[in-house]
Amino acid sequence: MMIRAKFRKAKRLRYISHLQLLDTLRRAIRRAELPGKYSEGYNPTLNLSLSQPLPVGMAGGGEYLDLELTAALEPEDFCRRLNDSLPRGIEILQARLTDNRLKSLQAVVDRARYHLLPPLKDQSREVRDSRAEAVLQEFRNKKEIIVVRKRRNKSDRSYNLREMVHEIKTAAEGRWSFLVSTGSRGNVRPEEIIRGLQQIDSSIGEQPLINFYREGLYVSRPPKLLTPLADEIMEGE
C-alpha cells in the first residue's frame, strides 16, 4: 500500500537541498507517527521517494512524494497529521492512497512548468507587456533554438531547446510560463530557457534561480497533461 501526495516547498525552505528535504520529511513522518514502511537490511530507512529535485533557491508549488505504508489511513488524515509535524514552508496539499503498483515518480513525471518573472527592464508596464508578448511569440514561432549545456567533467553538448518546450504563455501577474521536458527522457534546465530567450532578445540578462518558480510537475499523455495524482496514473500499469 502506498500514498502519493502533492506538496509545496516555498518561502525560506526553498534554500534546503533535495537530500535535506528528504530527511526533513522522514523525520516529520516519524514525529507524526504515520505508518510508514521501512526498508529491510542493516540500516532500515523509510521507503519514501520524491519527484525530480528542485534546485536550491527555487520554490515549487506542485512537488510530489510517494510513501509506502504498513497500514491504510485516510488521505485527509495523512495531510493533516504530516502538516502538523512539518516546519513552515513545506505543506502537503493533497494525497491519494493506492494498492496499485505505480511507476516511480521520477520515472513517470516528464513535464515541469516554470514561471519566470519577466526579465525585461522597460519602465512602463504597457511597453513591457507588449514586448513580452513579442518575445514569447517569436520563441513560439522558432523551429530551432540551439542552446549549449555545460556538463560537469564532460564536454559541452548542444541541443534544440525549442523541441523540449511544449507550451509558452503568460500566467498571473505577467509571469512567463514554460512547460518543458523534465526527467530522464529529456530535461530542460531553467537557466537554459534564459539562454534561449537571450537569442531572441539580447537585452535579457542572467536570471537568478529565485526568479523562477516551479509551478508543478506533470505527466504527458497526449493530448492530455496529467498530474501524478490523476486517475489514469493512480490506476497503475
Binding site: 525560506r12 525552505l13 534554500y15 526533513t24 516529520a28 509535524s85 512539518l86 516546519p87 513552515r88
Partner: peptide
C-alpha cells in the same frame, strides 16, 4: 540553510 533558521 545555515542562515535561514526556521528549523523544527
Amino acid at each position: 540553510e545555515r542562515y535561514i533558521g526556521r528549523e523544527w
